[in-house]
Nucleic acid binder design. Structure first.
Length: 423
DNA sequence: ATGCTCCTGCGAA
DNA sequence: CTAACGTTCGCAGGAGCAT
């Protein structure tokens, strides 16, 4: 039962290029929030040796010497482009899992196996024509193998023109490919597990694939055991269908500059709670816990460090006011004077579908109905007029904690006002 | 012993 | 001029608690 993994190449950079062709062929990086570190690199930048996650301040000098163009991230643009890609892909399979902003699994069960490569090429061309974005397609019998096939398609290791189907390779050919791949290329094998595997003499994908699942389970976990099975074509990781509501919702951000006052933290927490509550209502869920956390800058070791979180249980709700009130209670409990705070966040937990909670003797049903109406109006206005048009007063207007984004591209696809004027 | 909730570690993009 | 290092999600497994 073949599965395809479609992955956009250098997604954020490609989105920027789709609207600004002058960036084509040039070295381009996209930076994380606060222009902190590299989160997307064009091939030219990768060739210059810039690593994923490298902090901007460390590479700035080098970057300027080599004419690297650095852009702040523009999530409104990437999110919109992602939605277009996913929508197009939905035409290519009855079952689709949107795995991340730039990746999508497609269930190709029942499709003629000998023509899957051609099908992959069609997917590539269609996405390119309709969005301008380059994608690669990996095809194999399990999700883990499809990820690996996609990697091969990107590197041109097997297959051609951005499509690789492991189902078309012989056992010998597969063995050769797997022996050439370092074990850390496997989905689920990160830094820590790579180190431990290497100390056991397992350096390549082939070595992991041929090791004993029982031993791996003993020394590591059931997760890595499943990975070994998946590498052998035994499907253990199901396709997650769309529309499954999230189990937790997190909104957090580092600040553009540090803050010390409770007031500033309250503003940020209020703002984050509002964003989180919007997501919650979009999912049709309610939250039974609000977790708040604040922390100083761990990289500034000379400063006194503080890092705390607290969970505030509430009667499950999706009402921004109630969630914010709970968040404020939590914040006041963990706030300590005298620290340079760099980041805060709000997590909504114990989520469940709305209308399925235990009732309580003291529920005010009429008030709940009025609150629902208020929230609907708030969401509608914010959707129509742009995020943050209406917020609770506690979100504040000083926003000393706001992000730095010094070189953001226009919101080409979501804000009329930001379209460049052509004379 | 068993089952729960909470918290931490890990990995992914 | 200087200092400057992301965000969001899920899973597993251990700790701690109650039964």
């Amino acid at each position: 039962m073949p599965i395809a993994l479609v992955d956009c190449n250098n997604f954020y950079v490609s989105c920027e290029r789709a609207f600004n062709p002058k960036l084509e062929g040039k070295p381009v990086v996209v930076l994380s929030n606060n222009d902190g570190c590299a989160v997307a690199r064009s091939n030219e930048v990768k060739a210059l040796g810039i690593k994923m996650g490298e902090p901007w301040f460390k590479m700035e000098k080098f970057a300027k010497q080599h004419g690297i163009i650095a852009l702040s991230s523009n999530y409104a643009l990437y999110g919109d482009m992602s939605a277009r890609v996913m929508s197009i892909l939905s035409n290519f399979s009855p079952r689709q899992e949107m795995y991340s902003i730039d990746e999508c699994f497609l269930d190709l069960a029942g499709f003629p196996e000998e023509s899957l490569i051609a099908y992959g090429l069609t997917i590539r061309q269609t996405i390119k024509r309709h969005t301008g974005l380059p994608v690669c397609v990996g095809i194999a019998s399990t999700k883990t193998l499809a990820k690996l096939a996609n990697h091969c398609a990107k590197k041109g290791l097997a297959g051609e023109e951005g499509v690789c189907d492991f189902g078309r390779l012989s056992d010998d050919e597969l063995g050769t490919v797997f022996s050439s791949l370092p074990v850390n290329e496997v989905w689920g094998v990160g830094r820590r597990i790579t180190e431990k595997l290497q100390s056991m003499g397992i350096h390549t994908v082939q070595a992991l694939r041929t090791s004993s699942p029982e031993l791996i389970r003993q020394r590591f976990s059931i997760v890595l055991e499943r990975t070994v099975l998946e590498l052998n074509g035994v499907s253990c990781i199901e396709l997650d269908q769309v529309g499954v509501p999230q189990q937790q919702i997190l909104v957090s951000r580092s600040f553009g500059q540090t803050v010390t006052a409770l007031d500033d933290l309250m503003e940020s927490i209020s703002f984050f709670t509002t964003r989180a509550a919007e997501k919650l209502r979009r999912d049709g869920s309610v939250a039974g816990n609000v977790c708040v956390y604040v922390r100083t800058n761990p990289f500034k070791e000379s400063d006194p460090q503080y890092d705390r979180s607290i969970v505030v249980p509430i009667i499950a709700t999706d009402d921004t006011s109630k969630l914010t009130h709970a968040a404020m209670t939590g914040l006041k409990a963990i706030y300590r004077i005298g620290y340079q705070y760099k980041k805060s966040g709000v997590m909504l937990m114990a989520l469940e579908p709305k209308g399925q909670q235990q009732g309580s003797l003291f529920d005010d049903v009429a008030e709940d109905g009025r609150a629902d109406q208020r929230m609907k109006v708030m969401d509608a206005i914010n959707q129509r007029m742009g995020k943050g048009s209406i917020t609770l007063a506690s979100s504040g207007i000083k926003q000393r904690w706001a992000m730095r984004r010094e070189n953001k591209s226009p919101n080409y696809t979501t804000e009329w006002g930001e379209l460049p004027v052509v004379m």
